[in-house]
Amino acid sequence: MENRTARLTILLDPQKKKIFEDICASQDLTASQVVRKLMRQYIIDNASERELPDWLRGTATTGKSGVNDG
């Protein structure tokens, strides 16, 4: 299972952040949930030959379309 104790700080344009948060809220998701989904999918799509833990490989769909928070 995932351990959600690490923190990632990013800097972004305030307008882009507001739009992102509004869209997340309209889908009843937090920004953190969406970022975690995007990160999992990015890892799966770009891991190449890296060995991924079963819990990570099983939480997202393959391909660039859509992701699943597991």
Rank of each mutant, 00 (worst) to 15 (best):
Ile23Gln: 08
Gln27Phe: 09
Asp54Trp: 11
Lys18Phe: 12
Met1Glu: 11
Ser48Leu: 15
Ser65Arg: 10
Ser32Lys: 13
Ile10Tyr: 02
Lys16Leu: 13
Arg4Phe: 13
Pro53Gly: 09
Met1Ser: 10
Phe20Asp: 00
Asp13Arg: 11
Lys64Ser: 01
Asp22His: 08
Met1Pro: 05
Gln27Ile: 03
Gln15Val: 10
Asp28Arg: 12
Gln27Lys: 12
Ser48Val: 10
Asp28Glu: 14
Phe20Pro: 00
Ile10Leu: 09
Leu12Tyr: 08
Gly70Ala: 13
Glu21Gln: 09
Thr9Cys: 04
Asp28Lys: 11
Glu21Trp: 02
Ala6Pro: 00
Leu38Cys: 12
Leu8Asp: 01
Gln41Val: 09
Thr59Gly: 06
Asp22Phe: 06
Ile44Tyr: 15
Met39Leu: 13
Ile44Asn: 11
Gln41Ser: 13
Phe20Trp: 09
Ala25Thr: 08
Asn46Leu: 07
Ile44Leu: 15
Thr9Phe: 03
Asn68Lys: 15
Gln41Met: 15
Ala31Cys: 08
Asn68Tyr: 14
Thr59Asn: 07
Thr5Gly: 05
Val67Cys: 11
Arg36Asp: 00
Ala6Asp: 01
Glu51Ser: 06
Glu51Cys: 04
Thr30Arg: 02
Arg40Trp: 09
Gly66Cys: 07
Arg36Ala: 02
Glu51Asp: 09
Glu51Trp: 07
Ala31Asn: 04
Phe20Gly: 01
Thr59Gln: 12
Arg36Cys: 00
Ile23Asp: 01
Trp55Glu: 10
Thr9Met: 08
Leu56Phe: 04
Tyr42Val: 11
Ile19Val: 14
Glu2Gly: 03
Asp69Ala: 11
Asn3Lys: 07
Gln15His: 13
Lys64Thr: 01
Ile43Leu: 10
Asn46Lys: 13
Gln33Cys: 10
Val67Tyr: 05
Lys16Thr: 13
Lys64Glu: 02
Phe20Thr: 02
Asn46Ser: 08
Thr62Asn: 08
Asn68Ser: 13
Thr5Phe: 03
Met1Val: 13
Gln27Thr: 03
Thr30Ile: 02
Ile10Gln: 07
Glu51His: 04
